[in-house]
Design a protein around this nucleic acid. Structure first.
Lengths: 115, 115
DNA sequence: CTCTATACCTAATCAAATTATGTATATGCA
DNA sequence: TGCATATACATAATTTGATTAGGTATAGAG
């Protein structure tokens, strides 16, 4: 099922969100991330797998994540974790995204006309 | 000059930002919007004209904005204003964007691992 | 007479998401 | 037994939206 009737993900923030999840958890697998985002945001945000997996693969290519694969209950699980480089980069990315979010909020909350 | 060394704009939020500016000001021209955004965000965000004008034209096509052109000091100015439809849509869009921003912030501020 | 600011704009490209599928196992339930 | 749902991975085609890189033109400062 391809449920997606929740809020649009803020474009460009997906990779930072992934890295933040992994900063908190040390390792997670893709499907788990989609559930975690729904839970944390109370279903307001939904990461689709079609967006998630390419993003994960890109972060792997960039050397920011590494993987270990396990068999659990007969199903495959590919765990992702931050590399050393990834941990450093996570801090930078979270900071930049917070700044950007704040700027948008300042704009959205501005009351005065600009003369 | 194509200055752009400020924060990346949160992708997908540009049209909402434009509409918010016009909610505050009743009418503005493009170049004025780029300056307003820099001023309000203290240079943290920069709307490039290459992103702005296509976005304005799209909002025009959707019937959310309307224009009036004036000659000021020998230079052309194309003023944009919200239509009735645009005013309604502005409220909806701002609300949706605020929700989305909040969800991202909740994610970025979440401290606990997800078990 | 040149540089900066003002003021509009588009074309080509790139990045990142969505839409639409595809594979496969495990589990609940009727 | 058989079907739906949940788990778990993934890709291809398309669309959307911004970036990069230009272009035109007037006004004013030095």
């Amino acid at each position: 099922m391809k449920t997606n009737e929740s809020n649009p993900v803020i474009k460009g923030s997906l990779s930072t969100i992934i890295m933040k999840l992994l900063e908190n958890n040390s390792r997670m697998y893709g499907y788990e991330m989609t559930k975690a985002v729904r839970e944390i945001t109370q279903n307001k945000m939904n990461i689709t797998e079609a967006a998630l997996y390419p993003a994960l693969h890109k972060l792997l290519d960039e050397g920011l994540l590494e993987t270990t694969t396990e068999q659990v209950d007969g199903r495959m699980r590919k765990y992702y974790a931050l590399t050393k480089k990834g941990k450093k980069e996570t801090i930078v990315k979270i900071d930049a995204l917070k700044d950007a979010l704040e700027s948008v909020q300042i704009l959205l909350n501005s009351k005065l006309g600009n003369e």
